[in-house]
């Protein structure tokens, strides 16, 4: 379970203050598949970063599995990220100098699994995304869709309870995007909670739950709402 209450996050630069999140309230239940939409610059990535413990917040409360993350040190945060959270990024973020096997291996190494367990998990994760036969290849030798599938395998390999994805299909064509979403649905079906930021309304439709972020605040929307319309409304405001 993931619960945010009145979370605030403000970026200060010399010239301006940006309130990226203000009084952000959200509760995500075990097993949810949440699609996050909203106009550009509204705070979606910030929300995901705070949720994934990549960024700290200024005010409010955030509980992950019933435990407040406020005041945790770097080590504890790293451990939580490592054990409970899997990340999928818009630009895949594979490490170019490592082959697929070693890429998926990265979080498992930090986890401290022994080599037999790592091997078994890596193979299984790559199996799941259908790339088990290309373990020795390097990211540059793969298409974008394949790269994102490796990234998903990497996120999955540690059996995280939460999968956070920031525009996972943003760099993919619609065919590939659809394939990735199929994969995510399958993972969700097996019990992993997924929060996915997307700007594609048709993909958002496929999540159980839709939330809409605007000016750093969140509104719940019915699944099936015409998000395109919402976006246009926002543009007019």
């Amino acid at each position: 379970m993931l619960k945010m209450t009145s979370v605030r996050k403000t970026f200060r630069t010399d010239t301006i203050e940006t309130h990226a999140l203000r009084d952000f309230d959200l509760q995500v239940e075990e097993g949810d598949f949440v699609a996050v939409t909203g106009p550009s610059g509204s705070g979606k990535t910030t929300f995901l970063n705070v949720a994934g413990l990549l960024e700290t917040f200024d005010d409010g409360d955030y509980q992950l599995d019933g435990k407040s993350v406020q005041g945790m040190n770097d080590r504890q945060l790293a451990q939580l990220r490592n054990e409970k959270i899997g990340f999928i990024f818009q630009s895949f973020n594979l490490l170019p100098d490592l082959n697929l096997f070693d890429n998926v291996d990265v979080p498992l190494r930090y986890r401290g699994f022994n080599s037999a367990e790592r091997k078994q998990r890596i193979e299984q994760a790559l199996e799941t995304v259908g790339l088990a036969n290309r373990m020795g290849h390097y990211p540059a030798q793969l298409s974008g869709g394949q790269q994102q599938r490796v990234a998903i395998a990497r996120a999955l390999a540690g059996s995280p309870r939460f999968l956070l994805a920031d525009e996972p299909t943003g760099n993919l064509d619609s065919n590939m995007a659809s394939g990735v979403l199929d994969l995510l649905s399958e993972i969700n079906a097996q019990g992993t909670t997924i929060i996915m930021v997307t700007h594609d309304p048709s993909l958002a439709q496929r999540a159980q739950r839709n939330i809409f972020v605007r000016d750093g605040q969140v509104t719940e929307v019915q699944t099936g709402t015409n998000i395109q319309e919402l976006l246009q409304q926002t543009a007019q405001v």
Binding site: L54, D74, A78, R81, N82, F87, N93, Y110, R111, G158
Partner: peptide, 13 residues
């Protein structure tokens, strides 16, 4: 970016 990614995947400082 790679370092950020590693940190996201659970690497400590």
């Amino acid at each position: 970016k790679q370092i950020g990614t590693r940190r996201a995947l659970g690497a400590t400082k």
